[in-house]
């Protein structure tokens, strides 16, 4: 169980958080203009990387804020935590 440095609350146990999957997948502004394939790309396709991955996390049992996190899925090392809307760091 890892420790996450919530950008609003500070370090907390992982059990307070929930993971929302891959980050930086923007909901298309004009879904109606998309083909089935393009929409499916947004809806279903996720990278699921073994290694450094950009993820969305929610401090569900805390401030309820969503934020982004860069985590190495092979060893759970957290490289960066940053707020929604902030630019992803270069890792």
């Amino acid at each position: 169980m890892f420790v996450i440095n919530c950008p609003y609350c500070g370090e907390r146990d992982q059990s307070e958080f929930s993971c929302g999957g891959e980050a930086h997948i923007v909901r298309p502004k004009q879904p109606t203009e998309l083909s089935d394939d393009e929409w499916a790309e947004y809806l279903f396709m996720r990278k699921n990387i073994k290694g450094v991955q950009f993820e969305r996390w929610n401090h569900a049992h805390g401030c309820r804020k969503w934020f982004n996190m860069v985590r190495d899925t092979s060893n759970d090392k957290i490289h960066a935590v940053y707020k929604m809307g902030e630019k992803p760091p270069v890792i």
Binding site: V26, A60, R64, M84
Partner: peptide, 13 residues
């Protein structure tokens, strides 16, 4: 509630 918060905070801030 959690789903609505998600959209509010991440898609439609």
């Amino acid at each position: 509630l959690s789903k609505l918060e998600d959209y509010l905070q991440t898609e439609w801030p």
